[in-house]
Design a protein around this nucleic acid. Structure first.
Length: 685
RNA sequence: GCGCCCGUAGCUCAGUGGAUAGAGCAAUUGCCUUCUAAGCAAUUGGUCGCUGGUUCGAGUCCAGUCGGGCGUGCCA
């Protein structure tokens, strides 16, 4: 907020200097950065503009700095007390205490909203999809990072003025092999048969079976029932973790409404999908450059049968990655650990393949694959939309889904998808999907000369249409990948799976931490404590880097735990304010700037003033850890103030009341910060 | 092979191209007859993996290289 104000001042004096002919107009293009000097001797804020603009202005940095400083002093002595040029050309500034202290009063006005201070220039309508795991298992501690990150990202994006829609995509397509296996497992348990070798065996499967407990139904019925139960469980855990959605979107609904078929027709019409038997693959060189375009000829079913080549029919061993969005490992075996559903089937045997082929053909393609020509849209190869047996792939529903998402909120500008580390290969694919959906039907163009282009595209018209669509897709789809979390206990990596072979679920993590922290507390209190600590730990580190979740530290109810450090500051303020009000009456706003002159008071005010900048920055680079780190810094600055500046002093009522005001501002700012993180701000501890 | 992420204090990690690289944990030592000691202060601890480049200025940007983690290489 202050920074923005200072940048405006610079902008104004630059215009003036340009107007006077002392500087070339180009300097107005240079962005102005106001920084925060580490050394207090360098003033409250500094600006490096003279150094940056030296070349463009044709002046040496020192001289340019002097010119700027002179103008600042002349025009803005009401705000700035001291302006000096230092070192190679930094402009160091001190701000009038009245001006800074005014912000404390602003923070305390009843209708003050964070958004008003940190609002971005052009608010967007944004759809954020996060977590979205398959409804065939509990939310794991791996998905926990995505849940904490995604929900706080939404809060932050909203705080800077965007309209945000929180969305969960339910992978409930009836063709899902995994959901079918899950249903088979549940059915087997109910009917007293052993779970198929490669079926789902965790405790939660038995819980689902117990709840359903009805025999002799069709497998479709079991699939529907077990899916519904798992989804309810996921919804409830996420709610306890502080995550709420605007929309739970069903994949199957896209098929039922005919949207998927419509999109497929549209893509075929635009020529970006076709039945030609050739698949394009790109050979990539370092740096993402296309080195060569390769073609592979596919065989039809009829030819295939002649060769009796079953191998080619078996869908690649089903990716362990599938249900995952995992995001956490702890054990040396990465594959096993990445999979939050370790008990489920990972391959199909030949018999199952036969059954698939004979049963599951809603549409017959005459044994010919329908390809999305995604290699033309930045992906490294073409992808299958409809298998030879007629079943649609998940990519087909993705096209329709992404089109539909732009309706939530109405007129959506941007889609953000938060994915786990095992999905980073999806970025190109999803971008191609959105590009295919947005693409216009190509005009007929000129033949292409460049070797690679000529191989890849029909003509210049198609190339242009594809490139335009891809550029638009990149603008409108943002995929954020969060990295792995390693859980550490007793200084060693903790297994993702418990001793009994069950998965480590998010709800277990919350309960375990809660029980340790509040052994005497109610279940609800324990869950809340577990939620607070887990959320804070997930959010403390950049989502873009793997980190260790220290369970020992998380379970400590002491000064070592940063969550308590921050919460304690809030509780401490509440206690002090209550006591102060009893002794001195309500806080008033006397002359804050004249009274709050102690170094520790000024440091605290400055930190409070920083929140809008920090929030805006987080909204720009998606770094939610900034908010958690800010919370720690604000708490530290408060504790430091508390230690050096006694609030309640009966012989100095004016000063006491001013400090009470400062405490209230801190309390409010801490609360706002913790709200963004989804962590509670207790009034006493 | 290609892609993504990481390499900063003994450990876990911050760090907006800027001035003397920070915090927490761990270690040592002080501070409660006054507002919550779940707090504060002080001390110790660094070839920012390596080599070049861009720049007035590089932990930060670029190229290369070494090391670690993960993903991916024909129809989930």
């Amino acid at each position: 907020m202050l920074r923005t104000k200072l940048a405006e001042l610079f902008r104004a004096i630059l215009s003036e200097l340009v107007g006077e002919g002392r500087l070339p107009a180009e300097v107005l293009q240079i962005p102005i950065e106001i920084s925060d000097p580490k050394n207090p001797e360098h003033g409250d804020f500094a600006c490096n503009f003279a150094l940056v603009a030296s070349k463009v202005s044709g002046m040496n940095p020192r001289a340019l700095g002097e010119a700027l400083a002179e103008k600042l002093t002349a025009n803005y002595s009401s705000i700035l007390t001291e302006v000096e040029v230092a070192g190679p050309g930094f402009i160091n500034m001190r701000i009038k205490p009245e001006f800074v202290a005014g912000y404390v009063e602003t923070v305390l006005t009843p209708d003050f909203r964070l958004e008003s201070a940190s609002r971005v220039a052009h608010p967007l309508k944004i759809n954020v999809e996060f977590v979205s795991v398959n409804p065939n298992g509990p939310i794991t501690i791996g998905s926990g990072r995505g849940a904490a990150y995604g929900s706080t990202l939404c809060n932050v994006l909203e705080a800077v003025g965007n309209t945000v829609h929180r969305e969960y995509y339910i992978n409930d397509g009836v063709n899902s092999e995994q959901m079918r296996q899950f249903a088979e497992s549940v059915k087997a348990i109910i009917e007293g048969r052993p779970v198929p070798d490669k079926g789902y065996k965790g405790d939660y499967v038995h819980e689902v079976a117990e709840k359903i407990a009805t025999k002799d139904q069709t497998i479709d019925w079991y699939q529907e029932q077990s899916q519904k139960l798992m989804l309810d469980a996921q919804r409830s855990v996420l709610a306890q973790f502080g995550v709420e959605y605007d929309t739970w979107f069903s994949e199957q609904s896209l098929h039922d409404s005919g949207m998927v078929d419509a999109e497929i027709d549209s893509m075929v019409d635009k020529g970006i999908a076709d039945y030609s038997l050739t698949r394009t693959k790109l050979k990539m060189a370092k740096g993402g450059r296309i080195e060569d375009v390769l073609f592979e000829t596919q065989k039809t079913d009829a030819e295939e049968e002649d060769e009796v080549n079953l191998d080619a029919l078996i869908p690649t061993p089903i990716p362990i990655a599938e249900p995952s969005m995992a995001g956490s490992v702890a054990d040396p075996d990465p594959l096993e650990l990445l999979d939050p559903m370790p008990d489920h089937i990972t391959t199909l045997d030949e018999e199952e393949v036969d059954r698939e082929i004979s049963e599951g053909s809603p549409v017959d393609n005459d044994g010919v694959t329908l390809w999305l020509r995604s290699a033309k849209l930045g992906d490294d190869m073409d992808r299958v939309l409809r298998r030879r047996d007629g079943r649609l792939t998940y990519i087909a529903s993705d096209v329709a889904y992404h089109k539909d998402k732009f309706n939530r909120p109405a007129g959506t500008d941007k889609l953000i998808t938060v994915l786990g580390p095992d999905h980073h290969g999806y970025i190109g694919r999803l971008t191609a999907v959105v590009a295919a959906m947005l693409m216009a039907k190509p005009q007929v163009g000129e033949p292409l000369i460049d070797d690679i282009d000529a191989k890849l595209f029909k003509d210049s018209g198609e190339k242009e249409a594809c490139e335009a669509a891809l550029a638009e897709a990149k603008r409108r789809l943002e995929v954020q990948i969060f990295q792995l979390v390693r859980f550490v206990k007793d200084g060693k990596p903790a297994p993702m799976r418990k001793r009994d072979g069950n998965i480590y679920a998010l709800i277990d993590l919350m309960k375990e931490i809660g029980v340790k922290l509040k052994p005497e507390g109610s279940e609800a209190e324990q869950l809340e404590a577990g939620k607070d600590v887990a959320r804070f730990f997930y959010l403390m580190r950049s989502h873009d880097t793997t980190f260790d979740f220290d369970l020992d530290l998380a379970e400590k109810q002491s000064d070592e735990n940063p969550v308590f450090y921050v919460q304690y500051a809030h509780a401490r303020i509440c206690s002090v304010l209550a006591k102060a009000e009893a002794a001195l009456g309500a806080a008033k706003a006397p002359n804050l700037s004249a009274l709050l002159v102690h170094d520790r008071e000024k440091a605290l005010i400055k930190k409070i003033v920083d929140l809008p900048d920090e929030v805006r920055r987080a909204s720009e680079d998606y770094g939610m850890h900034r908010i958690a780190n800010y919370a720690i810094e604000l708490a530290r600055t408060f504790h430091y103030f508390y230690d050096g500046c006694r609030v309640i002093q009966e012989d100095q009522p004016e000063l006491s009341k001013a400090r009470m005001k400062l405490c209230e501002a801190t309390k409010r700012t801490l609360k706002t910060t913790l709200d963004l993180l989804g962590v509670s701000a207790p009034e006493k501890m």
